[in-house]
């Protein structure tokens, strides 16, 4: 480990930068929000959740063992089970178990 002072400095920087990004929109628009930002606020969740799904799969390697089958099959499974039962815990649990089995089997 590097010295305590520098460690604290770097952790402090990570914390403050993250807080800055999380608080910035609220600080910028504390006195009324422009219509265009409200519009973005309404449509961003759909776009960002889709972005996060891709983000989670970013390290999927189609050339490596498995060729992305565990990821793709498990994601599809989650979609199907969720469409069927609409039970968040069930969908996530089943998908994760299937994924864990597939990465060991392939």
């Amino acid at each position: 480990m590097i010295d305590t002072g520098h460690s604290l400095l770097l952790i402090g920087a990570m914390a403050l930068c993250t807080m800055f990004l999380r608080f910035l929109p609220f600080m910028m628009f504390s006195k009324g929000t422009p219509k265009v930002i409200l519009y973005l606020g309404d449509v961003l969740p759909n776009a960002i959740i889709a972005m996060l799904v891709v983000y989670c799969l970013r390290n999927m390697d189609l050339m490596a063992a498995g060729h992305g089958v565990p990821e793709i099959a498990s994601v599809l499974m989650v979609v199907v089970i969720h469409k069927w039962r609409h039970n968040m815990i069930l969908s996530i649990l089943t998908g994760t178990v299937i994924y864990m089995i597939l990465i060991r089997a392939m």
Binding site: I49, V53, S74, V75, V78, S91, I92, L93, G95, T96
Partner: peptide, 14 residues
């Protein structure tokens, strides 16, 4: 993978 699955579930709901 449960985190990926969480986002997929939220995507389906939205």
């Amino acid at each position: 993978f449960s985190m990926t699955a969480l986002f997929v579930v939220m995507l389906v709901e939205q």
